[in-house]
Simulated scan of single mutants.
Amino acid sequence: MSHSAEHERVRAGYDVVAEEYRRRIGGELAHKPVDRALLGLVVEEARGGPVADLGCGPGHVAGWLAGHGAAVVGIDLSPRMVEIARRDHPAAEFREGDLLRLPAADGEFAAAVALYSVIHLGTGELRPAFEEMRRVLRPSGTLLVSFHLGSEVRRLDEWWGHSVAIDFHFLESERVADLLTEAGFTVEARLERADLPEEAATRRGYLLARRDTDPTGG
């Protein structure tokens, strides 16, 4: 199956569950102290510059960032998710777009977060996605990436009573770190944690990376 067909399956799946996803997941940061701490670090690193929420879903992370002083742009593949995010979080801006073709200018953002969004990319798409993230970040910009740890691919055919066809790619932290390095980042911190009672039973990985400064100015 082509990459575009796979992305269309993801888009269609998230469109159909969007409102239920918002209801179930939209308040998740209330019970995620580690995530809140890392997001606070991203706000501090941005130093007042704009922050991108890549794969923003219903906009709850973007809303949290905006509520803590950041100028935020959320980007998501699902038009329905973007619609809900605009409705529920008017303090942030939201755009529809693909991680491989971000609707953003070169160097537009001081920092970016990609929380559990790269898990829907195929193995060969991870480095291009990270290169695209590098493109939209300013030199020395901060990137926070999170994902489910492992090496399996789980197919979801039914989600909260809806028929879907979405693959969830579990990722190994060392492999993601290597791809970030190849894409022009320096990985500065790594963290792993167990799932919380409110979460799916998967171990979680976080990488905090900084966009390298190209000596040629790129």
Rank of each mutant, 00 (worst) to 15 (best):
S4P: 08
E6T: 10
E8Q: 12
E8F: 09
V10Y: 01
V10A: 03
R11A: 01
G13V: 01
Y14D: 01
D15Q: 01
D15M: 00
V17M: 10
V17S: 10
A18K: 00
A18H: 00
E19K: 11
E20L: 15
E20Q: 14
R22G: 12
R24P: 04
R24T: 08
I25M: 15
G27Y: 00
A30Y: 03
H31M: 11
P33H: 11
P33R: 14
V34M: 10
V34N: 08
R36V: 15
L39M: 06
V42N: 06
V42H: 07
V43R: 00
E44R: 13
A46T: 04
G48K: 06
G49R: 12
G49N: 05
P50M: 11
D53C: 05
D53Q: 03
G55Y: 02
G55D: 10
G55N: 07
G57V: 04
P58V: 06
H60Q: 12
H60W: 11
A62S: 13
W64Y: 15
W64P: 01
A66Q: 11
G67Q: 03
H68N: 13
G69M: 05
A70G: 04
I75C: 08
L77I: 13
L77C: 07
S78E: 06
P79E: 04
R80A: 10
R80K: 14
R80T: 13
M81L: 10
V82T: 09
E83S: 15
A85R: 01
H89A: 10
P90I: 12
P90W: 05
E93D: 08
E93M: 06
G97Y: 09
L100H: 05
L102D: 00
L102Q: 00
P103H: 02
A104W: 01
A104Q: 07
G107L: 12
A111T: 05
A112Q: 03
V113F: 00
A114R: 00
S117T: 01
H120D: 01
L121S: 02
G124E: 11
L126A: 05
L126N: 03
A129L: 06
F130Q: 02
E131G: 10
E132C: 07
M133S: 01
M133E: 06
R135S: 02
V136H: 07
S140H: 10
S140T: 12
L144H: 01
V145A: 04
S146N: 05
G150A: 07
S151Q: 14
S151D: 15
E152W: 09
V153D: 09
R155T: 07
D157T: 09
E158K: 04
W159E: 02
A165V: 06
I166V: 15
I166E: 04
I166W: 07
D167E: 15
D167G: 05
L171P: 03
L171E: 07
E172G: 09
V176F: 02
L179Y: 09
L179D: 08
L179E: 13
L179K: 06
L180P: 02
L180T: 01
T181I: 03
A183N: 04
T186V: 15
T186G: 14
A189L: 14
A189S: 11
E192I: 06
R193S: 12
A194T: 08
L196Y: 12
E199M: 06
R204T: 13
G205A: 00
Y206C: 06
R210N: 01
P215T: 02
T216Q: 14
G217L: 08
G217Y: 01
G218W: 13
G218H: 13
G218F: 08
